[in-house]
Nucleic acid binder design. Structure first.
Lengths: 264, 264
DNA sequence: CGCTACATTGATGATTGTCAACAAGTGTGG
DNA sequence: CCACACTTGTTGACAATCATCAATGTAGCG
């Protein structure tokens, strides 16, 4: 069991590698078997966990809100439903991401969160979080940052959704995934997409056919290789150019909050 | 000269009329002169205020974060800038909206906030908010909800941006504005757009010409009347249908948080 | 093995972006 | 007061992107 890699990016964008990732639980693609450990930042001692199997929902819209979750292993999608019943994917949470913040406001969850694979999460009873947030400056700071981070993530996604060209959106999406895997200590150039083309399309505001076509197109051009869910990014400079970002300016949509120095 | 209304919607959706809005200061369109009062929820006594003139920025991206603001009068736009320099309007804050939350995470503001007219805001030093949040359960609850509300707003805007048809986006936008004015006690059917077509387009992920054309189109069809910035919504049922919402299911993108029972 | 869900690819057309011209409104300075 | 620049808004023509519809292929799973 090795420590999990959780980077922390300060305002400037510097990153430091501190911990390492837990072995993913359950049915995982072979290449993802990483040496296990404990994500120590969170009160190491027997913190309550919950397992979710492939396809199960961690919580659904309308469920009463009571706990936050920190993803320890596995992959999820987060679905928002508009008043008219339209459903959209709003994110693909994975290790170190915090889930459930959307329920704080009304006391009921606003999203459905569904597991792509067998996953495991820490369960943080919200009452505890509040208490902890009241009692310690660190706790207060962390709670605030969790929420604020989520707001920033929303802004970033809006920018993505109004990035006019589909090509650009797909490039941004791939580079963001790549960056998140890199931060987890996995390959930034080879990984498996856990979601369907439709999920990606929903997330990017595109039709699934457009996503499929663009992936094929990128492959023909030699920017990447794709075979079903397996993908290998080959030409980062070009992808960066397509995304409109540069390696330096690229800031991942979800930055982990918890780091090795944070103690609950 | 009518009192403006700030509703509060709990989890269930009940609303109550409680506070009143101050007279907008400075150069205001004549129809917006509203009877003066105080937005009492926030520590009525000499709370620090700040005036912003037309075109001035309340704060800009990169500015060190130190205070939150609650809009007391006037209209703003909020601009997010992506790493590559692309700028997008992420919201049009007005009375009772909270500004500055985006700076909590990094300690620096992530957005530019610009005033459309002469505006006035309450200044809430963030240190005070933190203290208040630590000391009182109510304060803690309110801080949390402010942040969580912002997250929900983000989700709603994402849904809007991935609503495929431009017609639908414009309809949603107009109905949202209408609803927000209604809640302020102003006319829900006649109001002035404070922003340019380009601002609207940026906010909706459309080109300004598309916005202009759709407004003209809606006018030709008799759904509304528009003349420059002045707009009158005529056929709500049709607009609701176009937006994909129904009057009941329509939830405004920004609900006010502060109400008469909240004391700082 | 067949079923089902997912992915790819093509043909086609609608929607929307782009470019351009022009009108209307606003503020400035002579 | 008028001329002027400048911003904003409208409208048209055209092209490009992307959604839609449809057919086919492929992988996983009972």
């Amino acid at each position: 069991m090795e420590p999990a890699v959780l980077d922390r990016h300060g305002g400037g964008g510097m990153s430091r590698t501190i911990a390492k990732v837990l072995r993913p639980v359950g049915i995982e693609p072979p290449q993802r078997t990483v040496a296990p450990s404990s994500v120590t930042p969170l009160k190491p001692a027997n913190r309550l966990r919950r397992r979710v199997r492939r396809g199960e929902t961690l919580f659904g819209a309308g469920d009463p809100f009571g706990t936050l979750f920190v993803v320890q292993g596995g992959h999820f999608k987060c679905l928002a439903t508009s008043p008219n019943g339209q459903v959209q994917v709003t994110g693909f949470p994975m290790v170190a991401d915090v889930l459930g913040l959307d329920g704080i406001d009304t006391g009921f969850h606003q999203c459905d969160v569904v597991a792509f694979d067998s996953a495991e999460v820490f369960v943080l009873p919200f009452a505890e979080c509040e208490q902890w947030s009241r009692d310690t400056a660190n706790g207060q700071r962390l709670m605030r940052r969790m929420l604020a981070r989520e707001i920033t993530r929303g802004h970033d996604h809006m920018l993505l959704l109004s990035a006019t060209r589909a090509e650009q959106r797909v490039a941004i999406f791939l580079l963001d995934l790549s960056e998140r895997y890199r931060r987890m200590g996995e390959s930034r150039s080879r990984f498996a997409l856990r979601m369907t083309r439709q999920d990606i399309g929903s997330y990017l505001g595109l039709q699934l056919e457009t996503v499929s076509r663009l992936l094929s197109h990128f492959q023909r051009e030699g920017f990447l290789q794709v075979q079903g869910r397996e993908i290998a990014l080959l030409d980062f400079p070009v992808l960066w150019r397509l995304s409109g970002h540069t390696p330096d300016t690229h800031r991942p949509m979800v930055e982990p909050i918890l780091d090795g120095r944070t103690r609950m």
